[in-house]
Design a protein around this nucleic acid. Structure first.
Lengths: 162, 162
DNA sequence: CGGTTTGAGGATAATATATATCCTTAATTC
DNA sequence: GAATTAAGGATATATATTATCCTCAAACCG
């Protein structure tokens, strides 16, 4: 059970977009270069964010992406689900139905007990991600990334932001 | 991010093994038949349980599997990790290192802030699974499965248990 | 206007993982 | 000795992930 690498990419890209001044856009090309990622494939992750309405886009030179909401209004779960999908990690195929001791046509009143536990764990995972906002990440980064690197990075970004 | 179907299979098989009387074994063949699963492939899941020391095995006719510990001493996490592996669902590839604004040879003092959040969620998932014991599942099933099906199933199982 | 840049999205390929089957071996039972 | 079992290796098939390429329409720029 491994998350797509696009999840990591999307989270880092959103952290950069969160630092963009009001009204400006950053292109796939710049985001790919900044993170050392394949531009074409990163583009798919950014398209997922766009489809989830987490980012706005505009075309043309000076076009690209910006956050569609305040970073305090975007959770980790929003971003992870945009890329990874909303499906649960455990799929119940109801193998209890294959039990030869069951009367034909018997119908279960509740979802399988095994699945309920697995879904509870899945929900605990989602809850954790739901509670962390993109703004929290930016806050942590601004404390932990050395000030000169932080500053240089946003200079680099602003030089490329349309 | 989807768990292998073997996780579901292993959990259901353990629930059956938990109901086996002291000292008796149940074969792959019986477990596969009971759940309508491909015997050869289910065998791989059971081998994983064996390698994790969750079950004991014995060979020959009347051979098969039994729990190696009390069902109250086996957690969902034990079983899930035996089949799925212990690796975290989020892999940090440290893409921050590709930032062109970094001084050459700069070394991070902490793991990436993005990864820490993702790992925290992963740990919440594991915590939930760690807190549920196999005996809890058996308890739930014995309450929810209609008594006649429950009884017939264990009659069926005992007829095949060595 | 015409050339360039951008994101959207479709087609395709390469790679990795999950699913499944088959076969051999050694231990156990009868 | 014959049948049955789990362990584990080899291999095949299906699906998912990662990646690249191409076309299109919108936006910008001279």
């Amino acid at each position: 059970m491994i998350l797509k690498s696009q999840v990591e990419w999307a989270l880092h890209c959103c952290a950069i977009l969160a630092g963009l001044p009001e009204g400006r856009y950053l292109s796939t090309k710049a985001l790919a270069e900044l993170h050392g990622l394949p531009k074409e494939y990163l583009s798919k992750a950014l398209q997922s964010l766009s489809q989830a309405s987490l980012v706005d886009t505009t075309l043309g030179p000076s076009g690209g992406y910006r956050l569609a909401r305040l970073s305090s209004e975007i959770s980790f779960l929003d971003i992870v689900e945009a890329v990874e999908g909303k499906a649960r990690s455990f799929t119940c195929t109801n193998i209890r139905e294959n039990n030869p001791c069951r009367p034909a046509g018997y119908c279960d009143s509740k979802p399988c007990a095994v699945a309920r536990v697995m879904w509870e764990a899945d929900e605990a995972w989602r809850d954790t991600l739901r509670r962390v906002r993109l703004s929290d990440l930016v806050c942590t980064l601004s404390e932990e990334v050395p000030p000169d690197i932080w500053r240089d990075t946003f200079e680099w970004v602003l030089k490329r932001a349309g």
